[in-house]
Amino acid sequence: MRVTFTVNGRRHEADDVWEGESLLYVLRERLGLPGSKNACEQGECGSCTVRLDGEPVCACLVAAGQAEGRDVVTVEGLAGYEAARAGTAPREVGTVQQAFLDAGAVQCGFCTPGLVVAADELIERNPAPSDADIREALSGNLCRCTGYEKILDAVRLAAGRAAAPEEVS
């Protein structure tokens, strides 16, 4: 079947999609957007987190056909999505992404794309999250390398910078 939907602001068409394919497979294997990761394909790890019509969801659990006509944001478009939201000029690396770099929250990085999408949504929804809020919002994103401490640091840092954007160099 053919599936047509918007990804990171661009309209995409995928042909010959097998009906059992997930949105994740279509993004990764048909649209050349492998940033969303395939760690579990059962909704347990969050590494494929994308925004589907604004909601953070696991792309592995969305049937490709369900994405028809919908609007998807992936990690590849996250910085642009943030800029559009804030009405600022697009940057290569968004606030949350930069904070992950600065806090040393990236090791193998396989969980990172899902985490930055989820954390960006948290800060959009709750600009001053408590530690417990951060933990709850990210409880669907498994990381096997870091022990999460530096991920918490990164989200705190990003929230602080988002609240005071002029301080970001």
Partner: peptide, 14 residues
Amino acid sequence: GTLKVTGEFAYSSD
């Protein structure tokens, strides 16, 4: 790091 946070880092499954 930058490639990893932007989703551009090419893992073996990519």
